[in-house]
Amino acid sequence: MSKRSFPLGRGLLYGLYQTRLKRGLTKDAMPRHVAMIIDGNRRWARQLGLKTVAHGHRAGAAKMREFLEWCDDLGISVVTLYLLSSDNLTNRNSDELTALMEIIAELADDLSRFRDWRVQHVGSTAGLPEHLVTSLAEAEKRTATKTGMHVNLAIGYGGRTEITDAMRSIVAAHEADGGSLDTLAELLTPDMIGEHLYTGGQPDPDLVIRTSGEQRLSDFMLWQSAHSEFYFVEALGPDLREVDFLRAVRDYSRRQRRYGS
């Protein structure tokens, strides 16, 4: 479902509308896990005539900090942010990637020092610069004992690669235990595969949101989103407003989840 953002301003009427949306949400109908595909940062920078698209990426990162606050304030337990795909590592120019890596490293450090959030990198480190890998590892270590909202940073992430890595992990563990391929075939289940994904042990996303009006998954959480609800927002990433998010959650709460039926 796609929703267009209409300018409501930031005055009294906007505040009243935002409060009304929040009051209409019930705790029982709240998603536990929200996944966000932040898209449109480059278009945002170009539309404003900014010198480089890095300005758009930085604005998008700042918006994701806001987005996490909105989620936390509603009591959502897990949020996954799709910040950099494995495909981006090969189809973006080097200058843009260098700037984006710095912005993501700064964001990871910032989030690890904010509230009681637990930060986790989900994705592969292949192709990521050493300083970013270090920043992600330090953010995870710094927040390992925190008990607040769980924040997944999908960086160097690809859904197909994740499933492939999960299968390799299962085969390697089974072989290490002395098992054969025949016995593995008997034991293999969707639950076992799920346990070996980057997000193993976490609930699958109930709601997947994408900004910029694009309506595709872009290799994001292919396994985990099998029964997710989707919501597409016309606003470019940096222009996302809290009312857009609240509308997405309201829409989710009104849907009858069928889980494939």
Score class of each variant (00 low, 15 high):
Leu21Arg: 13
Leu21Ile: 04
Lys22Gly: 03
Lys22Tyr: 01
Lys22Asn: 05
Arg23Ala: 12
Gly24Pro: 01
Gly24Asn: 08
Thr26Trp: 09
Lys27Val: 04
Asp28Gln: 14
Ala29Arg: 15
Pro31Lys: 00
Pro31Arg: 00
Pro31Tyr: 04
Arg32Tyr: 07
Arg32Glu: 14
His33Asn: 07
His33Gln: 09
Ala35His: 06
Met36Trp: 14
Met36Cys: 06
Ile37Met: 11
Ile37Asn: 07
Ile38Gly: 11
Asp39Val: 00
Asp39His: 02
Asn41Ala: 03
Arg42Glu: 06
Ala45Gln: 05
Arg46Glu: 14
Arg46Thr: 13
Gln47Trp: 01
Leu48Ala: 12
Leu48Ser: 07
Leu48His: 12
Gly49Glu: 05
Gly49Pro: 06
Lys51Leu: 08
Thr52Asp: 10
Thr52Met: 06
Val53Met: 05
His55Val: 04
Gly56Phe: 12
His57Glu: 10
His57Leu: 11
Arg58Gln: 12
Ala59Gly: 11
Ala59Ser: 13
Gly60Ala: 03
Ala61Val: 03
Ala61Ile: 05
Lys63Thr: 14
Glu66Ala: 10
Glu69Phe: 09
Trp70Gly: 01
Trp70Ile: 09
Cys71Ser: 08
Leu74Asn: 01
Gly75Leu: 06
Ser77Arg: 15
Ser77Lys: 15
Val78Leu: 02
Val79Pro: 05
Thr80Gln: 13
Leu81Glu: 02
Tyr82Ala: 07
Leu84Thr: 08
Leu84Glu: 04
Ser86Asp: 10
Leu89Gly: 03
Asn91Met: 08
Asn91Ser: 14
Arg92Thr: 01
Asn93Met: 09
Ser94Leu: 10
Asp95Tyr: 08
Asp95Arg: 13
Glu96Met: 05
Glu96Lys: 08
Leu97Val: 00
Thr98Ala: 13
Thr98Pro: 00
Ala99Glu: 12
Leu100Tyr: 13
Met101Pro: 00
Glu102Lys: 12
Glu102Trp: 10
Ile103Trp: 02
Ile103Thr: 10
Ile103Gln: 09
Ala105Arg: 08
Glu106Arg: 08
Leu107Tyr: 01
Leu107Glu: 09
Leu107Asp: 07
Leu107Asn: 02
Leu107Met: 07
Ala108Phe: 11
Ala108Pro: 12
Asp109Trp: 07
Asp110Ser: 10
Asp110Leu: 10
Leu111Thr: 11
Ser112Phe: 07
Phe114Ile: 10
Asp116Thr: 08
